[in-house]
Design a protein around this nucleic acid. Structure first.
Lengths: 141, 141
DNA sequence: CAAATAAAATACCTATTTGTCTTTTATTGC
DNA sequence: GCAATAAAAGACAAATAGGTATTTTATTTG
């Protein structure tokens, strides 16, 4: 449904969000290890996320990746749009060129409400909320 | 949301389904022309769909692609799974390895109903239904 | 049968995504 | 200042998706 890059990004962020000490920094290797993601690939994804202000990082000994208070206010949608671009949530599900509310494609009406629901959910849960839920229910990332 | 191959496939099938004469055969060139899809690429997609029994074809003069009665009973889900494989409708939206009803990923509960709704819609409208709707409302493919 | 037609098969090419590895730069602690 | 650490940056390699072109095979029609 989403690219591997997006999936890796979200899992990494949720992993960081659920550390006991919120400012505790985690290196790319231990992150990759914990989440079973190719190390070098994850490192690149993380760097990109830092550049896009979705996560934070510190160089040198004791350094690594972490989430600032600001970072934690982001929604999953924020992460997804940063990684994949804004078009994912716009545009016709099936790629019909002329699809819109006024000029709907053959599937528009049937799919619209569900797609909007999905979007709403992803847009209204921020990283903090997710971390709370994960810790409360002891969910696996 | 889906690959270009899937989008092209669905549009081509709906185009065939909405021809006046249901057994009327349409060549790959005129299909590609009508739908504004790269000719050779569409031709390959169509051949693949024939091989997978999603559409039908006839060689030689007057030949081309068409939909049999059986073909028309397929749902959009049938087309999508034939093209992309069954995993699209299984598997966690965000790629969490262990996600299931009993062991849900952090997003499972929030997204489940919407995703199921999407799946249900795509699964319960067959090509015939779609063609009817398109013709009734004069929708563009 | 011969010519025309159109799908099927095949061979490539290009771009993007995913994945790997090495070098550079910044930071920390002795 | 020096050594160790860890992110940043950059260069590639492999796999997949998307796209183009040519040759082969089957069918129809005169």
């Amino acid at each position: 449904m989403f690219s591997k890059t997006s999936k890796y990004a979200i899992r990494a962020i949720l992993y960081l969000a659920t550390r006991e000490d919120p400012e505790q920094k985690v290196g790319s290797k231990s992150l990759a290890n914990a989440l079973d993601i190719p190390i070098y690939f994850l490192a690149k994804v993380l760097q990109d996320l830092v550049w896009k202000d979705i996560i934070s990082s510190a160089k040198g000994p004791g350094g690594g990746f972490y989430l600032s208070e600001e970072n934690r206010k982001n929604s999953i949608t924020d992460v997804l749009t940063a990684v994949e671009g804004a078009e994912i949530f716009r545009g016709c599900v099936l790629g019909f060129p002329t699809c819109s509310e006024k000029n709907p494609c053959p599937l528009h009406t049937q799919l619209f409400s569900y797609r909007e629901g999905l979007r709403y959910q992803l847009n209204h849960i921020n990283i903090n909320d997710m971390a709370d839920r994960i810790n409360r229910h002891n969910l696996k990332i």
